[in-house]
């Protein structure tokens, strides 16, 4: 008998007695055990989350406003540009203001275009990269799968984000995105993921980024840039 078999056998033995459905231990009523076949009738987070999560509004304009507000609270900079050209100019202004010397990007359509327009030394992570070189970059410029209005988050994967490290190793992460990549809430983000990658094309990493890296470990005082980027900028058009 393998260890796996032993564990599964202990689990199956333990589950021979069903446990009471949560929330039934309230006032005056002893919980009654439910039969396992009623498990499928349990309310699930996957189907019901939208009803409980914070409100997001109904229109794309409301979502963009909410995203911007949440980003402000999170210390994420959001720049809304009129078109690709304006977005490139905004990125160049950022680069000049911070004095970037080299940047990293990947072969994602709009991110690569914006980076190329900078005319700086750049690493492209697509063909593999030297980790020391990536670490020395002033900024990592990536695309994303979606922006999430509800939480002010960026959804990206190894494919839309140029691998696992590009969006977390350089000190400034810049996301170039289209306004139509805005989704209202977290359930929509998961629907999008299923639609884009499921059931057989899952990337090995999917991340939801909500603000620049932070810690409160020292006296619960907020410090940005604990290990990941100290700055996060989203340029939208």
């Amino acid at each position: 008998m393998t260890e796996r078999d032993k564990i599964f056998s202990r689990i199956r033995d333990a589950l021979k007695t069903a446990s009471p459905k949560p929330g039934s231990h309230h006032l005056g009523h002893h919980p009654t055990a439910q039969q396992p076949d009623s498990l499928t009738a349990a309310r699930t987070a996957a189907s019901g989350a939208r009803d409980w999560l914070p409100s997001v509004g109904h229109t794309e304009a409301e979502w963009i406003t909410l995203f911007t507000k949440n980003s402000f609270d999170l210390r994420t900079s959001v720049i809304v540009a009129a078109d690709a050209g304006a977005a490139h100019r905004q990125l160049r202004a950022l680069s000049e203001a911070e004095g970037w010397a080299r940047v990293a990007t990947h072969g994602h359509g709009i991110a690569a275009g914006a980076s190329a327009a900078l005319g700086l030394n750049q690493i492209n992570t697509d063909g593999g990269y030297d980790v020391h070189a990536l670490e020395r970059c002033d900024a990592g410029i990536s695309g994303c799968d979606a922006l999430i209005a509800q939480t002010g988050s960026i959804l990206l994967t190894t494919r839309s984000g140029g691998g696992r490290a590009l969006s977390v190793l350089p000190p400034h992460h810049v996301v170039i995105a289209r306004l139509d990549q805005m989704v209202p809430d977290l359930p929509s983000a998961y629907e999008l993921l299923h639609h884009t990658y499921g059931p057989a094309q899952w990337p090995s990493m999917i991340t939801i980024i909500t603000g620049p890296s932070r810690t409160g470990d020292i006296e619960r005082i907020l410090v940005l840039g604990a290990h990941g980027p100290k700055k996060l900028t989203v340029i939208l058009y």
């Binding site: 699930t44 987070a45 996957a46």
Partner: peptide
Amino acid sequence: PRLADLAL
């Protein structure tokens, strides 16, 4: 059980 459970 499901990936979308994470939404909550």
